[in-house]
Amino acid sequence: MSAVAARYDKLQELGAEVISVSVDSQFVHKMWNDHELSKMAKKDIPFHMASDGPGNVGKIYGVYDENAGVELRGRFIIDPDGIIQGMEVLTPPVGRKFDETIRQIQAYQHVRKTKGAEACPAGWEPGKKTLKPGPELVGNVWKVWDPYKDH
């Protein structure tokens, strides 16, 4: 979570807020912030650290491990209408790549801005080629999108 705190400005630029969730109490969250995370991020955790002791929130989101009594690494991108656009779930020993979340938020924001007129192909990043779905594009993606150049 310190990695998210360290790059929190980037999320703010995108108008995104963060809620982190674990089964620890809010009091333990405070201790973790004070004694470890703030030292790693070189600042206090700027976002909401929620406590889900009984795992009720995790269960609803399908990321609560009943046997271990902990949440899995589930990350959900929720749009301004409250719709889940993206989700990724990892088992505990491997961490997430923050920049990938940023890329996905940017891509969904782009699609939203164009009201779905443009789609973001594999490997899309801001400034890269988008596709305009329609009858003319069917069977013709090979003409406009090169997986070696445009990915």
Binding site: A16, V21, F76
Partner: peptide, 17 residues
């Protein structure tokens, strides 16, 4: 509502990753 939200679950405070 009206903002983008990144909702992040993780195994626990004071764990290693």
């Amino acid at each position: 509502l009206g903002k983008w939200v990144m909702l992040c679950f993780y195994p626990g405070d004071f764990t290693f990753v």
